[in-house]
Amino acid sequence: MEPIIRPAKPEDKPFIEEIAKLTWEGEDYLGRVFENWLRDGNFYVLELEGKVVGTTKLTILPDKVGWLEGLRVHPNYQKHGFGRLLHNFMLKKGKELAEKGVINALEFSTYFLNKESIAMAKKEGFKVVKRYYIVGKPVKDVRPSKPSDSTINSLEELEYMEYIPVGWKFIHRVLEALEWLRKKAIVKECNETKFMIPKDSESAFVPFHLSKEYVSKILPCMVHEALSENQKYIETMVPEERKEVLESLRELGFEIWDNCKEPNVLVFRKEF
């Protein structure tokens, strides 16, 4: 039987949760975002002989960006071309949305070791437009402190230029991004400093500023939020152009994933 790609349905959740449990050592976020993605739309599954064995999602972001995410294939069904099948389907979907004027480009992010996806993307005309270091720190050696709820009043509060990291999504710094952040990110305040956490995706923390002094102030509050979600690490993205802060973050206990000398998170873009 040939595989089919179709919109996700509520009854697909057990299959999605099974894939999530077998991805990233069981720390995949797909199970948590399933209902939100159903409501949002452009959420698809690959079905083979009545079983969902793959997923993919296109999310509309500010500045008419179609963000590709959630591409997964069940480990038992990998190496059969299903990942490429889903990828090609989303390229076609992106082109359709571009023709309707809904988006003007596709973007996605990936880890530098994801060689297969990177090669596939470059072949399809995607280009790297931004690079980041992802850094992490164990929560065990910091005394937690509960933050207060807050909000973002202006994009000027954020030091990030061009792209604003929100988990593994990267949002164009345009006027409409402010309203998007108010809807899609949780903002916390601690010692007169702020940080964000994505509401419904990968949970990398976003300090409003990246200086050692600023991060040290919010560190106990980020630890509190991580522990409340049973997370063992705090992770955050550092733009390539802020490479100079990496050493001061090391002094706070942060380490670059895989001890990379070069940025290890890549943002790709394909324009229509």
Rank of each mutant, 00 (worst) to 15 (best):
K115E: 15
E189K: 15
L48A: 14
G83F: 00
T236H: 07
K92W: 06
R6S: 04
I134P: 00
M90W: 06
P147L: 02
L210H: 05
I164K: 00
E241M: 04
E18N: 07
V65M: 08
L106G: 02
Y77M: 09
S248V: 08
L106Q: 00
E17V: 03
G253Y: 13
R32F: 11
L71Q: 08
D258W: 14
E176L: 04
E255D: 03
L175N: 15
R32I: 07
F34M: 06
L158G: 07
E116Q: 13
M1F: 08
F82K: 02
E162C: 02
E96F: 09
E96A: 07
T193Y: 09
F170P: 03
K243C: 05
W257R: 04
E27A: 13
K92S: 02
K64A: 03
K9D: 03
V223N: 03
T56S: 13
K93S: 01
R72G: 07
K123S: 11
F108H: 09
R143H: 00
V129L: 06
F34S: 00
E202M: 12
K212Y: 12
P144L: 09
F43Q: 00
F112V: 06
K51P: 06
K261W: 05
L266R: 03
H209F: 11
F108D: 04
L181R: 00
K92D: 08
P239E: 07
K212A: 06
K130A: 10
S150V: 05
M222K: 03
L97C: 11
F268W: 05
N153R: 11
I16D: 00
R6L: 12
L22F: 01
V135E: 00
I118C: 11
I234V: 09
L91G: 08
H74I: 02
V65H: 01
D28F: 07
H87G: 10
E49Y: 13
F208T: 15
E162F: 12
K188S: 15
V267F: 03
L58V: 02
G54E: 10
M222W: 06
K64R: 14
I186F: 15
I197Q: 13
R143C: 02
V45A: 07
E99F: 06
E213T: 12
S201F: 12
E99H: 04
P144T: 10
A204D: 09
I134S: 03
T236I: 15
G81N: 13
D200H: 13
A185W: 01
K188Q: 12
L249D: 01
L158V: 10
C221K: 04
M90C: 11
H74Y: 12
E251W: 06
L58F: 03
I164D: 01
E107S: 10
Q78R: 15
N88S: 13
K64D: 06
C260K: 11
K79H: 12
G70E: 06
G94Q: 05
E116K: 11
V73F: 07
F254R: 03
F268Q: 00
E17G: 02
I4L: 12
G125L: 04
G101A: 08
K243W: 08
E271S: 10
W257H: 14
N230R: 15
E192K: 12
D63V: 10
K146Q: 14
G70I: 01
K184L: 07
